[in-house]
């Protein structure tokens, strides 16, 4: 049933990661992604992976769910690994296929790249698993608020994101209803060539647009009635406050960064 859908991929919980200020979480995740690219050998990458593993343990998000998000990009991981396997130059030749050679360096690079991309995806999904979409949009709004200086309507953008999140389930339900109604009138949505199928969408898209415009119109009225006049002079019920916990996480991140730099220096670079 449509009621079962969830937006984003929030996994409810009360872990330290869930409690972290979403702004800090976003910044640290970005930092994590940058640092991952700074890793030059297995030692530093290993340190990152270890930290990530620690994060997963703290979060309480089941490993199975994280693996699910990896599954979506499995193909990309595979192609990257394959390319690195064949295009890495130097090192001992392990296998000569004639048109291409596989070297030990190639194998190492392929493994390195696979681990790197996996860490990248797991790290960012860990953030989305522990932060509600609402908190994310809120945090983005606050992080971007300095852009107001350049007359960028940060609040409006965030409001649009919130409304989109709010109405996606409603619209999915609506599409479902309209499709059933047209199917009941014999609409054939499943067969025919591309043009037929595109044409078959008209009876669904037109009512959907009509009702979306009506919704937007009514929503605008309702918001006006609740004294909405844009972002000026607005306060927020949920304040974001940096706590000791957040400081702790930032401190951890600094240690991690230092560790990566050190390990990069003391051990030979792979790439």
């Amino acid at each position: 049933m449509v009621r079962d859908i969830t937006i984003g991929q929030y996994y409810p919980g009360k872990s330290l990661l869930h409690k972290m200020d979403p702004r800090v979480k976003i910044v640290l995740t970005l930092l994590f992604i940058v640092v991952i690219f700074l890793c030059k050998n297995f030692w530093s990458l290993g340190l990152m992976a270890a930290f990530l593993f620690g994060g997963i343990c703290i979060s309480g998000v089941p490993v199975k769910m994280l693996l699910k998000s990896l599954k979506a990009i499995l193909l990309i991981v595979f192609i990257t690994a394959l390319l690195n396997l064949f295009y890495a130059t130097g090192g001992k030749t392990l296998l000569d296929l004639g048109f291409a050679k596989i070297t030990d360096k190639g194998v190492y690079t392929a493994i390195f790249m696979t681990v790197r991309i996996s860490c990248l995806i797991t790290g960012s999904s860990l953030m989305t698993y522990t932060t509600t979409p609402t908190m994310l949009t809120d945090a983005i709004e606050r992080l971007l608020s300095p852009l107001k200086v350049f007359h960028i309507q940060v609040h409006t953008l965030a409001m649009m994101m919130t409304l989109a999140l709010r109405f996606i389930p409603t619209l999915i339900e609506e599409i479902d209803k309209i499709m059933n109604a047209q199917k009941a009138r014999g609409a054939d949505l499943e067969s025919g060539n591309i043009i037929d199928r595109a044409k078959a969408l008209v009876p669904i898209l037109v009512p959907l647009f009509v009702s979306s415009f009506r919704r937007a119109y009514e929503l605008a009225f309702a918001m006006e009635c609740r004294c909405y006049t844009g972002g000026n002079n607005r306060t927020r019920m949920k304040q974001m406050k940096l706590s000791l916990l957040d400081l702790g996480f930032v401190f951890g991140a600094v240690i991690l960064l230092a560790g990566v730099i050190l390990l990069n220096r003391f051990f030979a670079h792979l790439i």
Partner: peptide
């Protein structure tokens, strides 16, 4: 279905009523 008016999509009432028979 309930609130069937939300399924109307054609240019004219005639064409809309004709959707089923055409199918």
């Amino acid at each position: 279905f309930q609130y069937p008016e939300y399924q109307l999509f054609e240019e004219t009432v005639y064409k809309d009523i004709a959707f089923g028979p055409k199918n």
